[in-house]
Amino acid sequence: MYRIVAKKQLNSAVTLMEVEAPYIASKARAGQFIIFRIDKYGERVPLTIADHDAERGTVTIIFQAVGSSTKALAQLNEGDEILDFVGPLGNATDIEGYKNVCVVGGGVGCAIAYPSAKALHAAGAHVDMIAGFRNKDIVILEEEMRAVSDHLYITTDDGSYGEQGFVTNKLQSLIDAGNQYDLVIAIGPIPMMKFLAEVTRPYGIKTLVSLNPIMIDGTGMCGGCRVTVGGKIRFACVDGPDFDGHEVDFDELMRRNSYYKEQEHARDHECRIIKMGDAAISAESGKKEGQ
């Protein structure tokens, strides 16, 4: 059993939890993920590690309650226990040697973009961050992201906070303004990652995306998380979760993530929280939950 030592509601649908898992906390690196199972009836659900504290022996997860498991998780409180919590899985984000990086997060994807920005910042890179949200009400982690970046640009679709527009427009304008990025990291809804990769493609800027396909074991065993990258089948759990955004078949990934949409809907007709959440994220919600 893995105890929840802290819980914080970041917006109406996004929750932060700090979970006691000392072995994972001492090994985790930015970009890796855990798999949790809430109780004996639960699914195995992957979530990216948002932060970790080796001394406290804790791992932080940030998730959006979109499917039955993440909704149930969001109901737990400080002091409650999660039945299973395993990791750190997948490969850490390759940040070695980059000097000038733009990290882009979309919605709850900012929770995954944040640790990469933090690691890059700690390694001495110049970090610009673009964080996109649908509106002011769902902005998360602003202070944290500001603390690990040289510039933080917040965009909202409706202009209710920061600059009005999409993260793609902002990245384009930063490139146009002469910023010479040697790496762009894009984490968010699949359409956002797809279009960001198109922004950087003409400039040949290396673009890493973090993928969250459906998976069970997270150790290479089920093959459910297979994605096509550069025309080859790769397993996101052991070969990723980060891949070259210019090579990923995003359309196929989007289709595969809707695998169980029918069942999800049959189980939960009134998915109120999805409607409340980030519209772009809800478009990819039938899949791997919460991110």
Binding site: Y23, I24, K27, D84, V86, L89, G218, T219
Partner: peptide
């Protein structure tokens, strides 16, 4: 929940 090669 111990993945050898990852957790340890």
């Amino acid at each position: 929940n111990f993945v050898i090669g990852k957790t340890l």
